[in-house]
Design a protein around this nucleic acid. Structure first.
Lengths: 149, 149
DNA sequence: GTATTTCTTGACAAAATTACTCGGAAAATA
DNA sequence: TATTTTCCGAGTAATTTTGTCAAGAAATAC
């Protein structure tokens, strides 16, 4: 699970779509100007999200983008996974492919695996709706929360 | 909290040190060969860890590196934070520095903040000892665990 | 149909970061 | 002194990220 500006732009853009009036269309340039992002770069990103059916693009005058479903059904992990490739998480497949190194097999393998699983779990619990509701921090909402025991 | 091969190499190398007999010294080249990493690159990384007093370097014949403290006292987050710079986590300070964009302030700010806090928390609970004990997955050990409620 | 708006697509280029190399110096041992 | 090892700074190659550009396609308004 990589995380670059690409992923952040994607979440930001979809947040804008989520904020728009239901079924109204938002143009790329609107988002780009508001958020001060390169509009041509944003094009690329929204295209990825469209091809994965997370958003719907409408061409022609007064066209634009809208979410394909309601904000509570779109999780942050969905967005990030689409625009950033899924992270390999291994960090041990050095060359021969196998994971059994000379030093008594790959000890850190599980660590990175578990970390990315953890991140995925975290971002999979937060929806666009949570974000526009400011419901990210100190989440005490009905859905599962991660907590120290 | 970035995560590149640099961070993974660092954890891997320190795992090797943790596996070594108490107070025995391990050479850079030993680790490099065993893990199939560039030894000169590994030098740089171990140097960083040494300058942060996580490990101790001994020069001269039969020199090498050893941990500066016992494996259970070294957390993965310590290691990663040293070799990768601390991640900015914001993703919203576009230009003017302030966080109040035109689109009704920075909605995703909290999200990335919370994510990196979460990662830090996770890696801060796992020590080198846990790794060499294979105690990463399905942790049910005495120390605090992250768990779904 | 024509013009306009906007998305769609692909190829390309600049910038930044990551990953690694190199040459040598300092310290310790023998 | 010679050898072995860490230490240190600078520089370079490779990759990834972050864009730009130009042209095409679809929908709408006129």
């Amino acid at each position: 699970m990589k995380l670059t500006t690409k992923g952040r732009y994607a979440v930001l853009a979809l947040t804008e779509l989520a904020l728009a009036k239901e079924n109204s269309l938002v143009k790329i340039t609107e988002i780009a100007v508001r958020q001060n992002i390169s509009s041509t770069y944003l094009e690329q990103i929204l295209l990825l999200l469209k091809n994965s059916d997370l958003i719907i693009g409408v061409r022609g005058p007064n066209g634009g983008y809208k979410l394909s479903t309601s904000p509570e059904n779109i999780m942050i992990s969905d967005i990030v996974n689409i625009v950033e490739g899924r992270m390999e998480a291994k960090g041990c497949v050095s060359k021969s492919g196998s994971c059994t190194g000379v030093s008594g097999r790959c000890l850190t393998h599980d660590l990175w695996d578990e970390l990315s699983r953890h991140i995925e779990l975290f971002l999979g619990q937060i929806s666009l709706k949570d974000i526009i509701a400011g419901n990210v921090l100190g989440r005490s909402s009905p859905p599962k929360v991660l907590e120290l025991k």
